[in-house]
Design a protein around this nucleic acid. Structure first.
Lengths: 127, 127
DNA sequence: GCTTGACCTTCCAGTTTCTGGAAGCCCTAT
DNA sequence: ATAGGGCTTCCAGAAACTGGAAGGTCAAGC
């Protein structure tokens, strides 16, 4: 199938699919006219990447997951490790954002937010 | 003071300070030898930016905040709006990450993670 | 006076993950 | 034959730095 069909099937923009080919995540065949020709397996790979990216895995993680995916002798421990690392990352990020949220929420609450120049938010940022 | 001193005073890497000058967040004077010469006011601006960035404001937000900061006739409402927008962004991001976290945590839990190839994480990503 | 080493300068490239746009070929329908 | 939509490549930009190379400057020590 053409890139447009692959895009429709995976929900990925055609531009993104070309980019994924460029970095070697997928290697579609080429027709005589130069058009990419995506097999069902190619589309499955793209869908896999789309879902993994949606879970926040980096492109490099996706590359590793793809290689585990196609490795019939893989150990599930390897996959689990990648997922667990990603989970830790997410937890770290959530904690960080919650810290920021608390500080910022406090500042927003204490700022009267009217036409006067007096502002606790700027005061805080002034150090 | 030299860039190294400004870096030490603000906690920002010298590279980052040069970058901030390049994009116009600060305009240090120059000495005869070409070295940047940071005034106390320059250092205060850099510190302001460092703290705002630490709260997750974008560089463009910082530019706007700096201009409000130096505007003695500003309305605190303008500052509050920027901070409130940022707060919403943070909330959105936290919700998104918590969704990912739930999915991923479930997958990690259900994967036995041993030497066998069978793996619910890859199954899920396969669609 | 000269060397050494730390510190400063500019400029270019790379990071990450795409996204937009331009110039131009291909295919199908009218 | 022409119009349109889809396809191709290549270049540039976004965000916010970061690393490195090549080279100028300064203060201290011998």
């Amino acid at each position: 199938m053409n890139i447009g069909d692959a895009a429709a099937a995976t929900g990925l923009p055609a531009k993104t699919i070309r980019f994924y080919e460029e970095i070697g995540l997928v290697e579609p065949a080429r027709r005589g006219n130069g058009y990419r020709d995506f097999s069902d397996a190619d589309v499955a790979r793209l869908g896999f990447v789309a879902r993994a990216r949606g879970l926040g895995f980096s492109v490099e993680d996706c590359r590793a997951l793809l290689s585990l995916w196609s490795d019939k002798a893989r150990a599930s421990a390897d996959v689990k490790r990648l997922a667990a690392e990603r989970l830790e990352e997410i937890d770290r990020k959530i904690r960080e954002l919650e810290g920021l949220r608390a500080t910022l929420a406090h500042l927003v609450e204490t700022c009267h937010g009217d036409g006067r120049p007096d502002c606790p938010i700027l005061d805080e940022l002034s150090g």
